[in-house]
Amino acid sequence: MGERPRVYKTEGIILRRRNLGEADSIFTVYSDREGKFDAVARGVRKARSHMRGHLEPLTRTRMMIARGRSIDVFTQAETVTSYRAIREDLERAAGAVYCAELADRFTAEHAPQDGLYALLIDTFDALEAGAPLHTVRFFEVSLVALAGYELQLDACALCGARLPEADTLLSATAGGLVCGPCRAGAGGGRVVSIRAVKVLRHAGRAGIDSFAALDLGEALARELQAALGDVIRHLLEREPSAGRFVDDVSRLPVGATLP
């Protein structure tokens, strides 16, 4: 650690904020070069703070940071993209906050994970440009793979047998689809439709734009959300807090957005 420069520049997405003392906040950032880290912004809650708007959660920000003894300190911050369309739409905001929480929970501090920053940016860019909410499923499938838990979708995750083109058991414990004979040893799971299986496979192979362009329909989108929710819950050993919020929002009456 001793040889690292005392001040460094990086670019990242603000994942979360916690208030500290009277006017400071601690931000959790996922950055391209440093991975995830916490840093404090002094006086950021004062009305005249120069950094205030540049450190809002879900913002893509260029920042300069001084290494501190216990915690790093922001010295400058400048917005690259504020993701306004995401912020101004409750469903999109909930989806993006959910992605941010997963990025936080699936990573350790100062351990950059290859491809994760690009995945976050691609997902937020797509949502910002109006991609449907099922784009979040692409994020989940890709994140799980990046974290080393790629779902086995082409053959049985337990015995490697070929899978019939039919509804199949998806087992989080087994790490993918499980064939009929192996079901008893799969440790539970959820039977998913063959259409859902195909969409999951597509997420593993296609780019985000091609995935976002799929016309899933509501039932299939819900099925995928539930199936991947099982996988995420199993890996994290907890329910992501933002997942509950996504559900709360989905129960709201559909109405116009604020002017």
Binding site: E56, A94, G255
Partner: peptide, 22 residues
């Protein structure tokens, strides 16, 4: 803030169907 805006949008969605201006 992100949280304040989300809250405002949420309340708007709850209240708008009642015919009250938000």
């Amino acid at each position: 803030s992100l949280e304040g805006e989300a809250t405002a949008m949420y309340v708007h969605r709850l209240v708008a169907p009642l015919g009250v201006r938000v």
